[in-house]
Simulated scan of single mutants.
Amino acid sequence: MLALFSLPCRRSAVVASIFSNPARISRQFTTTPALLAKKGQTSTRRIPSKKAMAAKLKRRAAKEAKLVDHSNDMSLDAAIAVLRSVEVARPDVCYELFVKTDLRGVGLAVPKGRINIPREPKPKAEDTILVFAEGIQSEEAKRAGAQIVGGTELIEGVLSGRLRANTILCTPALIRAITPRLGRFLGPLGLMPTERRGTVTDDIQGYIKRIKNSAEWKADRTGNIRMPIGRMDFSIDEVVTNFRYVMESIKRVTGNLKQRDARDDNNQKRVTPITKVTLSSRGAPSIPISDY
């Protein structure tokens, strides 16, 4: 019984002894001169150049490609035959093409292009076209079929999401006015008008007429491209033709198709590697294609 009553007394004595000696409860901090940077001291760490980073990423991609198992890959004809046998009761089901590109390289843009596929598997969706133009060019754009036409007053609507379009064009006279505010917003989406893609032009009417008979394909931010290339009731030759046509467009945009024009030898674009191509359907698994 006496031991029980003595416990609070012992505890209070220990607490009193701790607080009576401040050195026991004070935390000691030390400073190491090697870890303290002096004012104005510059880092000696070497920053690799863009060329060195691109070479490093290329080596890494080549090393990763060797680790991929290609034992289950099929030829295009064999893959079509397998999918047709699986979907024999559903002739309206589409062949779905999946292309994976590697966007880890320095300065690689999201792949995007337009094609007029030989035989469309689905009805074409109407494009929403936004045009930055003024004066006579704005009137021509409206007559050509552009849904949204205007000058710099459209910038706020684009930034807020009130004005949305899957094709944006601009005249050379307005491109410098819209770039500071829209460049970083539309660039990652692949919608910023550029001279390289032909979306900065004085011939707005001609460009709209050209794209009206074509369909757009576009990768997502991770570099994946998905699109239907045919239906089960298409003939095998039609599916193969559509597949080759789409892959040629993707290879050309990503730089994997060599330029035949000798004048382009000194101006080769950066190559976006294609790491995987598969063909699938609604009721069948994805089949890797070997001869793309």
Rank of each mutant, 00 (worst) to 15 (best):
L2F: 10
L2T: 13
L4R: 15
F5V: 14
S6N: 07
L7N: 10
P8Q: 11
R10N: 05
V15T: 07
I18N: 00
S20A: 07
I25H: 11
Q28Y: 09
A34M: 01
A37Q: 14
K39Q: 10
P48N: 13
A55N: 14
R59V: 13
A62H: 14
K63H: 12
E64S: 11
D73I: 06
M74N: 10
L76R: 02
R84N: 12
S85E: 13
V86N: 03
C94V: 14
Y95V: 02
L97M: 10
T101G: 01
L103C: 08
R104T: 15
P111F: 02
G113T: 13
N116Q: 09
E120C: 10
A125N: 12
A125W: 12
I129Y: 00
I129G: 01
F132N: 03
E134W: 04
G135M: 04
I136N: 09
A141D: 04
K142T: 12
R143T: 14
R143S: 08
A146Q: 02
A146P: 01
V149D: 01
G151K: 05
E153A: 12
E153Q: 15
E153F: 13
V158F: 02
S160D: 10
S160A: 08
G161I: 12
R162W: 06
L163T: 06
T167N: 04
T167W: 06
T167H: 07
A173T: 10
I175Y: 03
A177L: 13
A177E: 14
T179M: 03
R184D: 11
F185K: 15
G190A: 06
G190W: 02
T199V: 07
T199L: 00
Y207E: 02
K209G: 03
I211N: 07
N213Q: 08
S214W: 02
E216C: 05
W217P: 00
D220N: 15
N224Q: 11
N224S: 08
N224L: 11
R226E: 07
P228M: 07
P228L: 04
G230N: 06
G230K: 03
M232S: 07
V246H: 00
M247Q: 05
E248I: 06
T254K: 02
K258Y: 11
Q268T: 15
Q268S: 11
R270P: 07
I274E: 02
I274R: 03
T278E: 05
L279V: 11
G283K: 15
A284W: 05
S286R: 14
I289E: 00
S290T: 14
S290R: 15
